[in-house]
């Protein structure tokens, strides 16, 4: 399958005394294996759009196809890996159990054959993210960056073909953020999943993505799609390289144009 996510005419309005239109007329196709970033100002509906793709929220208008069907069907097959803003690790469970969570829930999905999802070995992924020595630790014993690495390990162990990440590094300090970002780049280049990533950071979007989707302020509409021409692998690509800076400037300019237009 070449299209992992297909959105047509997506709209979402939050009801209330004064209804708030969060998204309007979103058309987007994400190809399988692509790393797409949703970028926009606060209130542009990036996270809402991601939640609609995950099936955590319903759209008021339009259609959503995820891996060839409705999002909830993909979720039932455990084909969606979700990384929320906080690491969302279970504090009572050890790192190994947290990373292997997908094997403990919705076991019905494991009994049928799913060629799209390829669960990975927990210890292998923990070694990949540098947490092999902390497999028996509890999340409270880990730093913020290590917790976020454990959260990344959880989705890569799940082996879902589609990963949805909602500002996963927003709570980290700049140094930790840049290190965990490189970890994600490394993991993605090794496992080649389809990723839809939400961020506020133009630098992060430029460094990680194949394509950046720029959203306007509320209601969120797509105002620009920017292809990122930086060759992969990018693990050694410095965040302050000319290529990254050029894409970052393009993203920021598109954001400003979208906000003023």
């Amino acid at each position: 399958m070449s299209e992992a996510v297909v959105l047509r005419g997506i709209g979402r309005t939050f009801a209330g005394r004064r209804p708030i239109a969060a998204l309007d007329g979103i058309d987007l196709t994400v190809r399988a294996g692509e790393f797409v970033t949703l970028f926009g100002p606060s209130g542009s509906g990036k996270s809402t759009l991601l939640r609609i793709i995950a099936g955590l929220e319903r759209a008021d208008a339009g259609t959503v196809q995820v891996l060839g069907g409705p999002p909830r069907e993909a979720a039932r097959r455990k084909d969606i890996g979700w990384v929320p803003q906080n690491a969302a690790l279970l504090p009572w469970a050890r790192v190994r159990t947290n990373a292997g969570l997908s094997a403990l829930v919705n076991r019905r999905a494991d009994r049928s054959s799913h060629p799209q999802r390829v669960p990975q070995d927990v210890d292998g992924i923990l070694a990949e993210v540098g947490l092999a020595d902390f497999a028996d630790a509890r999340p409270g014993q880990l730093s913020g960056g290590m917790q976020q690495r454990a959260a990344l390990a959880r989705v890569f162990v799940q082996g879902a073909p589609l990963l949805l990440m909602d500002e996963p590094f927003s709570a980290l300090d700049e140094i930790t953020r840049s290190s965990v970002r490189l970890q994600l780049l490394d993991l993605w280049e090794r496992h080649r999943k389809t990723v839809v990533f939400v961020t506020h950071s133009a630098e992060e979007a430029a460094l990680l993505s194949d394509r950046v989707i720029v959203l306007s302020p509320r209601p969120g509409r797509i105002t620009a799609e920017i292809e990122v021409p930086i060759p992969r692998p990018r693990a050694d690509c410095a965040a302050d390289s000319d290529a990254v800076r050029a894409v970052e400037r393009e993203i920021t300019a598109a954001l400003r144009a979208g906000a003023s237009g």
């Binding site: 995950a54 099936g55 955590l56 909830r72 979720a75 039932r76 455990k78 969606i80 890996g81 979700w82 929320p84 803003q85 906080n86 690491a87 969302a88 690790l89 279970l90 969570l101 997908s102 403990l104 829930v105 919705n106 999905a109 959880r154 799940q158 949805l164």
Partner: peptide, 17 residues
């Protein structure tokens, strides 16, 4: 924790899970 609940829901975890 809302994030944990979303992780469970994203995997279609049962109510018992």
């Amino acid at each position: 924790d809302r994030g944990s609940l979303e992780v469970f829901r994203s995997m279609a975890a049962s109510r018992t899970d």
